[in-house]
């Protein structure tokens, strides 16, 4: 058992597959993120080439259906007031979706790195507080901590820290747990079973977690906008 635990902890080592470019050492999560960014930009350029009002090609219909469905889903939660926040949330959803599924293709998902998830969670919380400030002004934002009753103020302030933590750990935990279990399974039955498991873990679980992350963020935003 010691051998397996060392193997796994070796794999989990943070700076395991880092690349060194001159004085900068870039950890794996970051350069995988760069790869995903480039991939997404290229795909979106290819998909939106030659769009017309009355679509002729299938890929325009595909793109419009995809983006439209996600947009409507978020619009149903956020409503008219929150329309300006939807593009950012769509970006996060697409990025997370791709990032979680990329385990299927042999890369290691960038969300395995705690920094990535923490960064995402911190940005979400900053966005929620920004939305609240924009809607109510700074005074209103400070006052909103003592609603509905003044006693719950410490809880509200604590929630300011707990919400991002829970978002981050949920995502990180899911991806990490999936990764470790995949490693264990690969050690035990390296033939076909990993593929089947990967179907569930990577695709279903990954997409679900991406959706849940964005859904919770949008829920917080809607709560802040009221």
């Amino acid at each position: 058992m010691g051998g397996i635990s060392e193997e796994i902890s070796q794999n989990l080592q943070y700076m395991n597959h880092a690349i060194t470019i001159g004085p900068l050492t870039i950890p794996q999560g970051v350069y995988t993120t760069w790869g995903i960014m480039v991939f997404l930009v290229l795909v979106s350029i290819w998909l939106t080439r030659g769009m017309e009002v009355v679509p002729k090609k299938k890929r325009q219909v595909l793109v419009e259906t995809g983006v439209g469905t996600l947009y409507n889903m978020l619009y149903g939660i956020l409503g008219e007031h929150g329309k300006r926040y939807i593009p950012y949330l769509l970006t996060v959803m697409i990025y997370l979706g791709v990032a979680n599924v990329i385990g299927l293709f042999g890369f290691t998902p960038p969300t395995k790195d705690l920094n990535v998830t923490l960064g995402l969670a911190l940005m979400s919380i900053v966005l929620v507080q920004y939305a609240s400030i924009r809607q109510r002004g700074v005074g209103g934002w400070l006052k909103s901590f003592s609603q509905p009753v003044a006693i719950v103020t410490p809880l509200n302030v604590l929630e300011l820290a707990i919400k991002p933590l829970s978002l981050c750990m949920r995502l990180f935990g899911n991806v990490l747990g999936a990764f470790i279990i995949m490693e264990l399974v690969k050690i035990v039955v390296p033939v076909v079973f990993p593929l089947a498991c990967s179907m569930y873990f990577d695709i279903f679980d990954g997409l679900l977690q991406a959706y849940v992350f964005v859904f919770l963020t949008s829920l917080y935003i809607q709560e802040a906008i009221e």
Binding site: I8, S9, L12, S166, M169, R170, G173, L208
Partner: peptide, 22 residues
């Protein structure tokens, strides 16, 4: 949706167990 949210607490336990072992 509810399952995904409820599973989070179970995952917290899993992660802590793993961290303890490793």
């Amino acid at each position: 949706l509810g399952c995904a949210l409820a599973e989070a607490t179970a995952i917290y336990g899993l992660v802590i167990g793993l961290m303890i072992i490793i």
